[in-house]
Nucleic acid binder design. Sequence first.
DNA 1: ACGAAATGATAGTGAGTACTAACAAACATA
DNA 2: TATGTTTGTTAGTACTCACTATCATTTCGT
Lengths: 198, 198
Amino acid sequence: MSGSSSSSSSDKLLLAAIDLIADRGYKCVTTKEIAAAAGLSEMTLFRHFGSKQNLLESAFDRFHYAGEMQKLFTEKLVWELETDLLLISRTYHEIMNRNRKMIQISLRESGSLPGFREKTQKHPRHLREFLTDYFVKMAERGKMVSTNPDLQAVSFMWMNYGAFMNNREGWGEGTFADVALDDFIQESVKLFVGGLTP
Amino acid sequence: MSGSSSSSSSDKLLLAAIDLIADRGYKCVTTKEIAAAAGLSEMTLFRHFGSKQNLLESAFDRFHYAGEMQKLFTEKLVWELETDLLLISRTYHEIMNRNRKMIQISLRESGSLPGFREKTQKHPRHLREFLTDYFVKMAERGKMVSTNPDLQAVSFMWMNYGAFMNNREGWGEGTFADVALDDFIQESVKLFVGGLTP
DNA sequence: ACGAAATGATAGTGAGTACTAACAAACATA
DNA sequence: TATGTTTGTTAGTACTCACTATCATTTCGT
């Protein structure tokens, strides 16, 4: 059977492309390099994907993990601020980390390649709405004070986004991440809990 | 008088280069385009800078605003948490905004061009040390509780960094920035003040 | 073992682009 | 006016790179 993506050669190429493009950029990486990194020949690349651009688009469609977030929450929330924020923060970083390379690509290539930015920005948008909603409901239950749930949600998100951005080369070494991820999560959640409950 | 960057032609070229490279990427932008955007000819570009790479490096040296931060603080701090955090946050966004395009470039081009990442990361590193120090001193004065000043400083910084990143196309429209910058600053500072004072 | 599908090796095309060479025009200063 | 400096123009070089064509080779189901 053939099709456009039959064996695992396609996947090898897609993964190699993601790796290389994520840390050197679309224009910098050559098709020959990608093929070599995948252990295949350049011809195979073009036979599978026809063009370099289509290769990247296919990579995005195949390896951009989406969704998941809402379901996890609506099931597991216990309506206790600290516990829930911890869950949300940890889940957020887990998903962002899984999509790390895709995010890097869409960050770098927005402006040169069109329509990539949008795809990675669906997550945050949904999460923001969800969090705002959560804060509103928590306030209704009298479990927190919420003068401005939307800004509070956004603050929490941006803090975690900033944390992710500063450590996307991997937590534990390099840059200025002598901060362990979960230490940060715990302390930052404490901070927000303190700021949201009088 | 000649020198390597005499008249304003050099500056026109540097600014055009920054603009174009910031939103399309180093490899995507051609020297001819840059020259055209500057209203000059391609030859003039090479006469002034010799090579494309040197053009970008010169741009960085000339238009990357650094320093400033520490001085502003050590002079203006009043040792009242909310006031100081507001000053710090506003100053931070002001500087980041002035360096917006440079940051975009160093973000995009780190990995392809070497040594750019580091330059834009000096700011945050200094700021982090400063903030940690500030928290320690505030705790000594009994004006806040500080179980973990470094993580608290980092949380505050990353929140503001995340805010900046999500709105570097300009505050007020687009993306998901229906949030005004100063509204965010005020609310987020309130949150941290609440979390840091029992 | 046989045939079909997938992969490889090699060579090449065509477009784009950083950068150079040589000469002409505009401009300033003295 | 004369001279030097800056810019423009035009043509061209050398190189990279996405992509194609052709033929040989491997892999694999049956």
